[in-house]
Structure formats: C-alpha cells, structure tokens
Design a protein around this nucleic acid. Structure first.
Length: 978
RNA sequence: GCCCGGAUGGCGGAACUGGUAUACGCGCACGACUUAAAAUCGUGUCUCGCAAGGGAUGUGGGUUCGAUUCCCACUCCGGGCACCA
C-alpha cells in the first residue's frame, strides 16, 4: 500500500479539533497524580499578532508539559491575556475604536494563532486581566496593601513621558528614556500612589537562595535590589555663628549630618562632606527661619535649584565634570580625627540613596578625588596598598624591620631613559631606594638619597607617583625581613655632570639607563611596580582598593578589611541600604484597572492622617472602568477619567458626603503580578482563588520567560506573592519554584525583530507553508535555548525534510516480532541512547541536541530495510512533545486508538546503552595514530597490548623507549615515548 | 567603569567529569532518477601538502601524557547596571 503524502494542513487541523473535543489537556483539580504546574508569561495581545519569537518559550514549555503528562503527572499548562496597556489604548485612539473592542479582536487572533501551533494549553482556564471579574481581585489586593500601609500616596518627582503622557516607574526608564517609545523623560512633581516594595527588599534578596532560578536571573535581581552593607556615621556641625552651636535637637543631640559609607575603614581620610542638592539640611538652611546660618545662602540656593531642575540625563551623563558649592559658615567635625572639614553641596551625590550625604575620601574614591582636585581640597591617604614580594619573600626566623622609604625615579630627557641601579651584591635592578629619616619630607629624602647614590643633584621634582605603599620583602643586603612604607617620586634630570660618589656606594651598584619598555614588573625588583606603571601612565589617582591602614590612629597597621566593622561600630552604626525604590503605581491613562480609592474633603478634616483618602468597600468592587467616548490622554498629567464627572463624583463610603474617585489607573504590571494564582481557580466569585486549589496547585513548578522581565514583572510578582503569603492568602512564600529564561529570536541578520524595521516573521505563513510541527521543531533546533539566535527561513527546510522522512517511516514498519537486524543490536542500543539523550536534554532545555539525536536515530532507521514496530513506537513517543500532530497521526496509523500524548514516556535500559563492540583510539604522545575494535569488557593490560600492535601505531613507537602508558576505560590508549 | 554571557568550518551549531574537535542541520560540489527542472536518493565537503605529514576551537602564556574544556593575562561581540559612596 502506498501511503498518502505528508499533508500537514490536513492532519494538524484534524488533531487540533480532536484534542479540543476530547479535552485531553484539561487539568483536573485535586487529582491523585502528582501535580505539575508549568507556566509561560501570558501574552499582551497586540494588534500585530504573534511573531515567531513569541513561540519559543511556549514551545519549550509545551514540550516539557507534554513530557510530564506522559510521565503521568497531572499537568496545568494555562494561558490567558495580559490585556490592559498602552499599546492597545494608543491603537484604539488612532483607529477610533474602543479599547475593549480592540482587545477582543486581538485576543481572538492570538487564540487562533496559539491553537494553530498545537500548544497543549488547558483552554478552559483562559483569563483576561481587563475582565472586571478578574480585576475585581487586582483591586482587592491593592486594598489589602493599603490596609497594611504598603500603598500610600505621595507627592514626588516622577519620570514623565511627554509622548505617552504617562508617569513611569523607575524600572521603566532606560538611560533616561521611556522604555516603550524612547522619548527622553521629563521631571514632574505629582501625587502618586506608591507600593512599598522596599519593605520587602531584604526578603526578595535573601529568598532567592530558596528557589531554583537560573543564576543569571538571581544575579540580575540581586544587582537591581542592590543590597549594600555599610555604616552610618554622624558628623557634628560647628557654626561660625557661635550661638548656633548651643542649639540641641529633640533628644538633646548637637546638630549633625549623617552619612552612609561602605568604607568606614577610610574614616580618618575624610577631608570634606558632600550633600545632595535635595538634602533636607540644604533645604532647611535656606529657608526663612534659618537666615544668617550660611554666609553664602544665595549662592547655595542658586546651585541647589539649578541642580534639581536638571533632568536625569543631564545629571547622570557619563563624563560630566563635577560641580559643587561650599556651605560657608559651617564646618563638620571628623569624629575620628576631630578635624574641622568643609561641607559642600554637589549634584554628584544622590538624594535617594543612603542618607543623601557622603563623607568624601579623595585619596580612596575616584569621584571624591576628582572633586578634591577641582576645588583644591586636601587628599589624605589612609590606606596603603599591600604588596608582598613573592620573588624576595620574608625568610622565616629573620627579624622583621619596619622602615619608611622612598623610591626615586629619574627621567633623563636627553637620553630619553630612566635611571636604574644594577646591584652588584644582589640579582636586582631597582630605582634609587632609600630611607626617610626622622620627620623628613619624602621629596627631600629622595633628593638626598639620589645625591648619595648617584651624585646627581640637578633634579626637578615632577610628581609624587604613589605613596605610601606597604611592601613586604626580604632585604638580603641587610639580612632582614622588611616591611616598608614607600613613597615613589618622579624627578627630571637637568644639565651637569654628577658629583663623585663614595667607594662604599660604588661597591653596591652601578648606574644603568633603562628604556621605558624595560621598566616592567618582571625586570624591576619592586613589588609595587604595577601601581607605579599604572600611575605613570594615567597620572595620579585615587586608590579605591584594600590595604593596610596608615595615619588612622590606633587602627594604623591593621588590614582595611578587618577594620570596616570596628570603625563603623566605634564611630557610628552598621546599616544596610538598598538601591531598590518604592514602586510608582499610578498611571494617567484610561486602559487600566481603576485604583479603588475615593477622596473625601470632609474625611480629610476629621481624619487628617488619611489626607482624605478612603478605600472603596470590598463589596463595591470591582470599580469598573466607565464606558466613554473620549479617553485621549491629557498633557495636564491627569488621567482621561478625570474628565468624566459622572464617574468621578461619588459618595464617600464613610461619611456619605460628596467625594471624588481616584482617576489614575494601575500600571499593566498589576494584573500580571498575581495571574498565575487565578489560573488555579479562574471563575471564583468569592475569592481570588479557592485556598484548597491554591494548596493543590501552587507554587508554579517551572516558569519560563524573558530576561527583560527579570527586574520588572518577575520582581513585582514575587513582591505581591510575599505580601499575600503574609496575609495567609497563599500557601508559599515564593510563587515560582523554578525560573528559566530563553534567548531572544532575532530577525535574519541578527537584528531585533521589530515591526518598524519590517523584519517580523509571522508564524501564520510558516505554519501554512511548512506546518506547525516543522515550525516547532525548527524553533527548538535552531540553537541553544538560552541564547539569542537569528531566524533563518533557509534553515527551516531541514526540520521539514526530517518530518517528511518520518512520514515515510510507515512504509517500512515490520509488524513481525522485532528482529535485531543482524547488526549486533546496534539499533537497539541507539534507541536506548536516544531515549536517554532526549529525556535528559528536555530537562536541561537543550532542545537543539534533543532534536539532533532524533535525527540521528532516523538516519539509522533509513539505512534499514525494515523497522520493528516497537522501535517506531518509541521513536514516535520521543517525537510527540516536539511534533505532536505528525506523531499522533502515525501513532494512530500503527493501530493505536488512544492518543500518543496519553501514552507513557519511554524508559531506557542502562544495560542496553552500551554497544557490543567498541572502538578504542590509540594516541602516541597525545596525537591520534590509530584505533582498534574491542570487547567492552577488555582489561587495561589487553587494551595496551592491542594498542601497541596496531600497524599505524607500531611505526611511531618502534625503536623508542616507552615512558608511560595511559588507558582511559573504553575510550583510548595513550602511549608516551621519548 | 562594574556584573553576567559569548567567540569553534561558507552558515546555525555539537563535544559526557580533561580523552577521536567539527555530531546534527543548512549551504555548496559531484553522481543517480528525469526529455528537462524541481523534489528525492547517494557520495563528498576545516585547512596546507603529490604524499608522508603538518596546522586549526578569538589572541598570548601556563598546568597536563593529553586542553574547545582547567588557570593567568588580553582582544572583540551581546546583555544588564551605572556618580549607589
């Protein structure tokens, strides 16, 4: 019988209908089988439909879900629509349709596309965030947060996108531009609803240890949360106006400024204080009540006002030079040294991190260094870099002698060379080295030493390269272990012959002249050459690293790492800060969940701490979006809802007086922060979900999505989940047990797929031409799942040809009992290897190699006249998750009446993995020279013996002395000859 | 600048725990089938060399009997963060 050709259109439609009818992918609540909840990020139904990039994640999780079903799990693989959002609203405005109608059209299209791709979703649980029955619970969760003080309204400067006419969350601003449209954001002061995600910062960070997220995801979230342990240290203030120094705060404390630092070990090196322009103290010092406190109030005021006006881009632009103004008439006192130091206001200090004030340590912080250079402030090194000389290490038992010293580098502009000393008594080349005597200045000491050792005195001081550096080495010429603090100083040599030097000096070393390329860490004996070269090349700069404390009172001599905590505790307290900010939750657009709050003037009077905000009673939820004609956004920063007076004016739920509704809506991250919970019980009218169902289904076992959501949706939903957990509403403290991420599918040529470039590949045309099975297979085969890959329409024919050949497999099924085909069980072993490989690769999301191993198995089948039915069945079971339609059709053709997707996942037999004969490679000195066939049970002795008799090997080892023989079991023999 | 990835044929990529580098697929070349083409099937396909052999996994070093794999230094590409004290 000649089979019909492979007609993907016919079989794919047929089976999709059949699966739908028989509901084979429906998830059963409370089944006795172990549950498996697999999740993909529900799509935002845009007007453009899906593109092939969207299907990568869906296909991967579909494969995993199908495999789990075959492994007899009760699988929940749901789908829904993240339907609120700007693009829909913008499109609706442009085309004059209602967003609701646009959403309906788009979801219908997406549903059609997803069904055509053959995904095994449980469609009975479909949800839509813009459905009032859904957003009733989004609003309800918001109210719970409000009750617990996590939702609050605050006037603040926000990022306003003038094009989208909407305020943005910090996470939505990229490089000072709107994430969506790329328009530079403006600063606007506005009352905003905020969610206090920072209260969960510590748990969001710490609990990452308890979940199985890809490491890169954890790292990115941790970086975003930005936990930083440091110290808060108070600097007391001293005013020029002596009367002010008498003032005390409410707890009797003197006026002071608190700074945050992670480098308390550098406290002795603090030479000034810097405040952010928004710092409370700056604001206070400038108001009317504090006239005369600052001698230059006008100047400071001007600077602070200008700085606050600047937008994000200007203020943070890369290589902007630092500016600032000193606060005249007040000094701070360094608590460690008691020194009076100046206070500046400068816009390089961020207001909303730490305390908005920093202690400046120019010697050890690059920014402070730059600022200090510009304003001529003292730079006091308190950390000496530590260099242990591994070429001349300390010798045990020798005395340790400390000394202060110099290293004199002399540049001769005439020779264009540096002066070096070649030691006669030691194998060293050095610059001029010497000690500092008493209170001598390092520069003077260097001049003196240079004169003594070289006779040169006509020297111009160029610069101090670095100092002090602590170096530890064995000074062989003095027979002591030396711990030296060394200052390196550069001089330029002038005219004139050197004076004669003593015989004693002559006996020690001779002068040589070194090219620039000769002064390397290898050539010179100084352990700190790396630092010297770096600073000779790039000039003087801060040393931000660790080392040994100097000039730090009782702490001098200790390693900086060990003093951070000690100094923090002595002069302040240890605190933890986070980069994460509270979540700006208000949006000024129509197509979102209304924030369920009303504002009542009357209540504001009776209950001032609420500012008049009253939550809508839970029984009145949902607060539905009014059906209106005009939802065009306004430039005023008010939501279009504000214009709908009939909706806005309402009764106060508390005093029954006149009240107004909140007109801002929620961001579209709201609905997606808890959607995975709703899938467990999508139609519940009494609760966001039945607790029993939540108990059964949650947490999500495996969640795959895009890296772009790591610091947005993924973080937000972990926050909401933790909140719900604290209220006893969900059974686990983390929503997702495992999170993985796919790489983006790029357009042909490796650029991003985008509608504006016009390089978007639509799955409809691919499914039409090649079929969903081919598309799925290709998406998995094209490259490593976690890395970006470029789409290639040329490449898709590979998987298509593969399926054509799978189709033809029917022609050679041998229904008589399996015969081993006379190949010594080769095929059988290959089948078991393939089962193992495909099983493991799916778990590791290495779908590309799983597909390739299926291709290898098919290639082996093709070489056979007949294929045993059981072999074909195994093959189809392995293929089913990848290409569900063709697998189902062929499975039926083999005589099965139940779906292949309900069949069980094949197991491999470890005993059958091994081939009956193996090839052992023979190397001589690590180079492949020959091979031989052997029994798997071969001993080391026989293997080596056989290896040595392989003809191609013999000619490499005859007449040579065999030095070593290595046998790697079942793999190779390496013979090492001299 | 900091943090994460990555670099292997003409192309997408493979290689277990350090053990035959280039699996699988695309493309290309040749052959079969065909009046012809497409499709399909078969053979070949890193590179230099007539060969024996040699050289190749971004670059330079190291460890090892043996390195795509481990270590050190560097270059380039992608992503994230970025005046976070």
């Amino acid at each position: 019988m000649k089979p019909k050709p492979y007609d993907h259109k016919k079989i794919e439609k047929k089976w999709q209908k059949e699966w739908d009818k028989k509901k084979i992918y429906k998830a059963a609540d409370f089944s006795k089988k172990p549950k498996f909840y697999s999740l993909i990020e529900f799509p935002f139904p845009s007007g453009d439909g899906m593109h092939t990039g969207h299907l990568r994640s869906n296909t991967a999780m579909d494969i995993i879900s199908r495999k789990r079903r075959m492994e007899d799990y009760n699988v929940l693989y749901p789908i829904g629509w993240d339907a609120f959002g700007l693009p829909t609203e913008n499109y609706a405005i442009k085309t004059g349709q209602h967003p609701k109608a646009v959403t309906k059209k788009n979801t219908d299209n997406f549903r059609r596309q997803l069904k055509a791709a053959g995904f095994s979703f449980d469609w009975s649980r479909e949800i839509n965030t813009s459905d009032p029955e859904y957003y009733r619970w989004t609003q309800w969760i918001f109210l719970q947060m409000y009750k617990k003080g996590l939702a609050y309204k605050k006037k603040m400067v926000i990022n306003w996108c003038p094009k989208d006419k909407i305020g943005l969350a910090n996470e939505e601003v990229i490089d000072g531009k709107c994430e969506r449209c790329g328009t530079p954001v403006e600063k606007r002061e506005k009352e905003q609803w905020m969610l206090a995600i920072t209260k969960y910062a510590d748990r969001l960070d710490k609990d990452l240890d308890t979940v199985d997220f890809q490491e890169r995801i954890k790292i990115q979230q941790r970086n975003w949360i930005g936990k930083s342990e440091g110290a808060e240290i108070s600097f007391e203030l001293k005013f020029a106006n002596a009367k002010l120094n008498e003032n005390r705060g409410p707890r009797g404390e003197k006026a002071h400024i608190k700074v945050f630092t992670t480098r308390a070990d550098t406290l002795f090196g603090v030479t000034y204080i810097v405040l952010a322009p928004e710092h409370l103290w700056v604001t206070l010092a400038l108001d009317e009540n504090h006239k005369g406190v600052l001698a230059n109030a006008d100047e400071v005021k001007k600077y602070a006002t200008e700085a606050k006006k600047k937008d994000e881009i200007e203020r943070t632009s890369a290589d902007k030079t630092k500016t600032g103004v000193e606060l005249k008439g007040v000094k701070a006192i360094n608590p460690a040294t008691g020194e009076e130091i100046p206070i500046f206001v400068a816009d390089y200090v961020l207001a909303n991190y730490g305390t908005g004030a920093v202690m400046a340590v120019p010697a050890h912080d690059e920014r402070d260094f730059e600022f200090a250079k510009k304003y001529n402030l003292p730079i006091k090194p308190v950390i000496a870099p530590l260099r242990v000389d591994h070429r001349n290490p300390h010798v045990a038992g020798k005395k340790i002698v400390f000394r202060k010293g110099i290293l004199g580098i002399i540049w001769d502009p005439k020779r264009k060379k540096y002066l070096g000393l070649r030691w006669k008594t030691q194998p060293w080349t050095t610059f001029v080295v010497g000690g500092i005597e008493g209170d001598e200045d390092p520069i003077e000491a260097a001049r003196r030493e240079i004169m003594e050792e070289t006779g040169y005195s006509n020297l111009t001081y160029k610069k101090s390269i670095i100092g002090p550096v602590q170096s530890e080495f064995f000074a062989a010429h003095k027979d002591v272990n030396r711990v030296a603090h060394t200052w390196t100083i550069l001089f330029e040599l002038g005219e004139g012959e050197p004076a004669p030097i003593t015989d004693e000096e002559k006996a020690k070393h001779e002068i040589i002249w070194l090219d620039e390329k000769d002064i390397t860490p290898e050539r010179m004996a100084h352990a700190e050459m790396d630092l010297i070269l770096d600073r000779m090349k790039y000039g003087e700069k801060a040393y931000p690293g660790e080392g040994v404390l100097v000039g730090s009172g009782a702490f001098s001599g200790q390693e900086s790492q060990n003093t951070k905590k000690k100094i923090a505790e002595k002069y302040g307290k240890i605190v933890t800060t986070y980069k994460l900010r509270d979540w700006i939750f208000s949006r000024q657009r129509y197509w979102g969940e209304p924030i369920p709050m009303v504002h009542c003037e009357n209540c504001a009077k009776n209950n001032p701490e609420t500012n008049g905000w009253v939550p809508v009673p839970e029984k009145d939820l949902p607060v539905k979006l009014p059906n209106v004609k005009n939802y065009v956004p306004t430039d005023s920063g008010e939501s279009p809802l504000a214009a709908i007076t009939k909706w806005v004016n309402t009764k106060c739920p508390v005093c029954k007086g006149k009240a107004k509704r909140e007109t801002d809506t929620m961001p579209n991250w709201a609905g997606s922060s808890w959607y995975y919970l709703r899938y467990t019980d999508p139609k519940n009218k009494k609760a966001l979900a039945d607790p029993k169902k939540l108990d059964y289904w949650t947490p999500v076992d495996w969640y795959n999505g895009g890296m772009e959501h790591t610091t947005l949706h993924l973080l937000y939903s972990r926050f909401w989940h933790k909140f719900l957990f604290d209220q006893g509403l969900v059974p686990t403290s983390e929503p997702y047990r495992k999170r993985t991420s796919h790489g983006l599918i790029l357009a042909e040529g490796g650029v991003k797929m985008s509608k504006s470039i016009g390089n978007v590949v639509n799955p409809d045309s691919i499914i039409e031409a090649y079929g969903a099975d081919t598309l799925r297979l290709y998406e998995m085969f094209m490259g490593p799942f976690d890395q970006p890959v470029a789409w290639s329409t040329d490449g898709i024919v590979g998987p298509r040809r593969f399926l054509e050949r799978v189709w033809k497999l029917q022609e050679k099924i041998d229904t008589t009992p399996p015969n081993l085909g006379g190949d010594g069980g080769g095929i059988e072993s290959l089948i078991h290897q393939t089962i193992k490989k495909v099983s493991e690769d799916i778990e590791a999301m290495q779908f590309n190699t799983a597909v390739s191993s299926l291709m290898i198995l098919l290639n082996a089948f093709d070489k056979k006249e007949k294929i045993a039915k059981s072999y074909a069945e195994h093959f189809l079971q392995l293929l089913a998750p990848f290409a569900p339609h063709i697998a189902e059709e062929l499975w039926k053709n083999l005589g099965h009446s139940t779906s292949v997707h309900l069949a069980s996942w094949p197991a491999f037999n470890p005993a059958k993995l091994q081939k009956q004969e193996l090839t052992i490679v023979v190397q001589v000195n690590g180079k492949m020279r020959g091979e031989f066939r052997a029994d798997p049970e071969i001993t080391q002795e026989t293997a080596i013996h056989m290896a040595k008799s392989v003809p191609e090997v013999v000619k490499w080892i005859e007449n040579k002395e065999v030095k070593k023989e290595i046998y790697v079991k079942g793999r190779l023999v390496n013979i090492v000859v001299v």
